[in-house]
């Protein structure tokens, strides 16, 4: 009985140690790859700016071109690509809002081109009602989830843009959009 158990125990110990070492080594190879994605982001139009129950809310169309094929390597399970807008207001020193995201699971789908319109659950909002004339930064971010190991996050920034000075809405804004989430 003993010899059996001992052998099993030894086998299990060696197997799990080896697996752990391989996992760590695999994860370390992440740093040998220096991806150089080609990324472009631009505001195509301002579609609306309105005051809602809990916040100001802006509507934009953003043109995204992101070729993230180079971030995929053998230890990449998926890339979570997303756009964030960040801005300062008198009330809040930091405001960060995600306005779009895309999950990419294969290298073949990593060349993203899209005309982004804000859709639920993403909404560019400011709880301090100060979006008129507000200066805002746009970023394209991507987070890679590994097969095993460490999650990595990268960011490219695309300058500032300024919101119009008054509330308005165009036809691009959905008619029933005043729920104030």
């Amino acid at each position: 009985m003993h010899t059996y158990l001992y052998r099993l125990n030894t086998l299990f110990t060696i197997a799990s140690t080896t697996l752990a070492v391989i996992c760590v080594a695999t994860s370390l190879t992440d740093w040998t790859i220096r991806p150089d994605p080609k990324v472009k982001l631009a505001v195509q139009s301002y579609d609306g700016l309105q005051k809602e129950y809990r916040n100001d809310r802006a509507w934009l169309t953003v043109d995204v071109e992101a070729d993230l094929r180079s971030v995929f390597h053998w230890n990449t399970k998926q890339a979570f690509v997303y756009i964030t807008a960040d801005f300062k207001t008198a009330q809040n020193a930091v405001n960060e809002v995600m306005i779009w995201s895309r999950i990419v699971q294969e290298k073949g789908n990593a060349n993203v081109r899209e005309l982004v319109r804000l859709e639920y659950p993403y909404a560019l909002t400011d709880p301090s009602y100060s979006m008129r004339n507000l200066t805002c930064d746009l970023h394209l971010d991507w987070e890679t989830v590994p097969v095993v190991g460490v999650l990595h996050r990268s960011r490219r920034s695309f300058g500032e843009f300024v919101f119009p000075g008054d509330y308005f809405r165009t036809k691009a804004v959905p008619r029933n959009s005043n729920s104030g989430w």
């Binding site: 979570f80 997303y82 930091v94 405001n95 960060e96 809002v97 995600m98 996050r153």
Partner: peptide, 27 residues
């Protein structure tokens, strides 16, 4: 910051939740 995956606990519930931050407002 927005985009980070965090683990949080809502008052009165025992099971923590793993989700992604989509908005941050900080005074």
């Amino acid at each position: 910051s927005a985009g980070e995956v965090v683990v949080f606990n809502i008052n009165g519930r025992d099971i923590p939740i793993v989700h992604r931050i989509i908005k941050v407002h900080e005074k």
